[in-house]
Amino acid sequence: MQPIQFFQLASQQAQWLSARQSVISTNVANADTPGFKAKDLVPFTQFLDAATSNNSDNVNLASTNPMHFADPAQMSMNIREVDDKSGKISASGNNVGLAQEMIKANEARQDYDLNAGLVKALNKMMLMVVRR
């Protein structure tokens, strides 16, 4: 089992949340586009599992030093179409629900605030230890 690198994990989640906000904003912008299908990102836990698994389907970068970080730009943000469980598809074939998109945007913002707060608190604790 590898040690958990908190700052690297927090950085990956922040990038995932940024990509999710972008997808949500695209959904909202296309709310009136005929035939547009809403999209979302795979959940962060699945994204993290895919990024760190050693399956033959995934290519992981090899590092020459354990202090090297993986390039976050090379990790894909698997975008998939959302299954519309409510069955509410407009006459134009569009399945974007603005209320649902606003809920998802709020969840992403709350997750980002929590992520930033945890990073700030850990950074503060580390600075307190270093100063002593």
Rank of each mutant, 00 (worst) to 15 (best):
M125F: 07
G93P: 02
H68L: 13
A73F: 08
Q2Y: 10
M75H: 12
D83M: 12
A19E: 04
L98G: 09
K85L: 12
T45G: 09
Q8I: 08
S63H: 13
E101I: 09
E101W: 07
D40A: 02
A105R: 08
P34Y: 00
Q110A: 12
L61K: 11
V28R: 03
N65W: 05
A38K: 00
D84E: 11
I79G: 05
D111L: 14
F7Y: 10
F47A: 12
A50T: 11
F47T: 06
L48E: 07
A51P: 05
A14D: 05
R109L: 12
Q21D: 00
I103M: 14
V23L: 01
F6Y: 06
M128F: 03
M1V: 14
L118Q: 09
D57N: 12
D113A: 14
P66C: 04
A105L: 15
S11F: 06
R132F: 03
D32W: 00
G35P: 00
A19S: 08
A116G: 08
N30K: 00
D71Q: 11
D111R: 11
P43D: 03
A91K: 13
R132L: 07
Q74H: 09
I24Q: 00
L122Q: 15
D32F: 01
I4W: 01
F7E: 01
M75T: 13
N30I: 01
